[in-house]
C-alpha cells in the first residue's frame, strides 16, 4: 500500500545574508541557515504521525513545506502517489482540497474582520464545492460537528475563547473534506484544561472521517496521547522514527532518551528528573559530524567526524552511530 504522504530528502535552507551592499563592503560571503536537512519519512493512511523536537529544530518548517507555504530547497513530497508541485495550478487544485492545516495560535488564525460563517466557508468557496444556501447549511453542520452551535456562524472571532476558536479552525479545516490534516502545535496556545478537549475532538474526528494527521508538537504528553508513530527532530534532522508506544519505553537515540528523561514525572514514581544538558546549537554554524555530539553523553571521536545515516532499529530507525547499542555503550 502506498503511504498517503511520502517525504524524501526534504531540505530547506534560508538565505540570511546581509544585503548585497553590506556584503560587498564588509567582504562577507552569503550565509545560509539550514532549517531542515535530508528529512525522509512516510505517513500511512489513517495514522497520526508526530514530529517532536525542541524550539528551532525545524518542526514547523517541515509542516509548512508539506502544505506548500514554503518551497523546499531540495527533496520531494508525494501525496497519495502524486508528486506535489505547488507551481502547477490545475493539478495542485485537486490535491490541495485533500489536505488542510490547523495552526498554533487560534487568535491569529481567524481573520478578526470575518464572521465565523465566512471563515469556515472559505475552503468550500475557494474550491467551489457548494453553492448558495448549501454553503450556509454545510457551515452550520460543521460547527455542530466540532461542538459549537449553528447560531455561532453569525458571530465574530473575538466573541469566542481560545478553545472555541480552535474548534472554528478545525471546522474550517474539515470543510473541504480533506484526508490529511497538518496540525502545527494545535494545543500549545491553549489552557491545559482545554487542550484535552481539543485533542479528544481531533481523535473523534479522525475515527469518524478516517483522517490522517501530521502532528507537530514539543509536548511529549500530547504526542503520547495522539500519535501512532513519532519522529524526533534535532537541529533539522530526523534522528529517530519509532512506533509511539515503544519510543517511550525503548528510546534508541541518545537525544530521544535525554528528552524523555526531562519529562516531569506526574506519576510521582520517585524517578529523578534529569535536566536536558546544554542547548540546541546555532543552526547557522552546526557542529561537525553528528549535530548532537557536543551534548551527547555517549559521544566518541567518530561522532565528530561522520554524520550518521539512519539505520534500522528494533522499533523503527535511528540516525546514530551507536543505534541499537546504547545499552552497551552506556
Amino acid at each position: 500500500m502506498t503511504p498517503l504522504v511520502q517525504v524524501d530528502g526534504l531540505t530547506r535552507r534560508f538565505d540570511i545574508s546581509k544585503p548585497w551592499l553590506n556584503r560587498v563592503l564588509e567582504r562577507e560571503s552569503r550565509q545560509f541557515l539550514t532549517a531542515n536537512a535530508d528529512v525522509s519519512f512516510e505517513i500511512k493512511k489513517g495514522e497520526t504521525f508526530a514530529l517532536v523536537g525542541e524550539s528551532g529544530s525545524g518542526k514547523s518548517t517541515i509542516a509548512k513545506m508539506i502544505v506548500g507555504l514554503l518551497a523546499p530547497s531540495e527533496g520531494r513530497i508525494h501525496f497519495d502517489g502524486q508528486e506535489m508541485d505547488f507551481a502547477s495550478g490545475a493539478n495542485m487544485r485537486a490535491l490541495r482540497r485533500r489536505f488542510q492545516m490547523i495552526f498554533q495560535d487560534p487568535f491569529a488564525s481567524l481573520n478578526p474582520r470575518w464572521r465565523v460563517r465566512d471563515i469556515v466557508a472559505e475552503p468550500i468557496v475557494t474550491f467551489g464545492l457548494l453553492q448558495g444556501a448549501d454553503v450556509a447549511r454545510e457551515v452550520d453542520r460543521l460547527l455542530e460537528v466540532v461542538g459549537l452551535s449553528a447560531a455561532d456562524a453569525a458571530k465574530f472571532p473575538h466573541e469566542f475563547s481560545g478553545g472555541q476558536r480552535q474548534r472554528i479552525a478545525i471546522a474550517r479545516a474539515l470543510s473541504s473534506k480533506p484526508e490529511f490534516i497538518v496540525c502545527d502545535e494545535p494545543t500549545s496556545a491553549l489552557d491545559v484544561s482545554v487542550q484535552a478537549q481539543i485533542l479528544n475532538l481531533m481523535r473523534d474526528l479522525q475515527d469518524e472521517f478516517g483522517l490522517t494527521y501530521l502532528l507537530i508538537s514539543h509536548d511529549l504528553s500530547v504526542v503520547r496521547h495522539m500519535a501512532n508513530r513519532i519522529g524526533v527532530l534535532y537541529l533539522g534532522r530526523l534522528v529517530e522514527v519509532a512506533d509511539a508506544k515503544r519510543l517511550f519505553l525503548e528510546p534508541q537515540h541518545p537525544y530521544t532518551r535525554m528528552l524523555l528523561d526531562a519529562v516531569p514525572d506526574l506519576a510521582l514514581s520517585g524517578r529523578r528528573r534529569k535536566p536536558v544538558l546544554g542547548e540546541i546549537p546555532n543552526p547557522i554554524d552546526p557542529p561537525s559530524g553528528c549535530a548532537f555530539h557536543p551534548r551527547c553523553p555517549l559521544a566518541q571521536d567518530i561522532c565528530k567526524a561522520d554524520t550518521p545515516q539512519p539505520s534500522v532499529t528494533p522499533t523503527g530507525q535511528a540516525a546514530c552511530h551507536f543505534a541499537g547499542k546504547i545499552g552497551e555503550v552506556a
Binding site: Q100, M101, S109, E122, T126
Partner: peptide
C-alpha cells in the same frame, strides 16, 4: 505573516483575493 493569511494560502486562494478580502480590511 499571520496565520489566517497562511490558512488562505494553504487552500490556494489567489493573492489578489487574499490582499483585498483578508489584508485590506485589517
Amino acid at each position: 505573516s499571520k496565520e489566517y493569511v497562511q490558512a488562505a494560502r494553504v487552500v490556494g486562494a489567489h493573492p489578489v483575493k487574499i490582499l483585498i478580502r483578508h489584508i485590506l480590511p485589517n
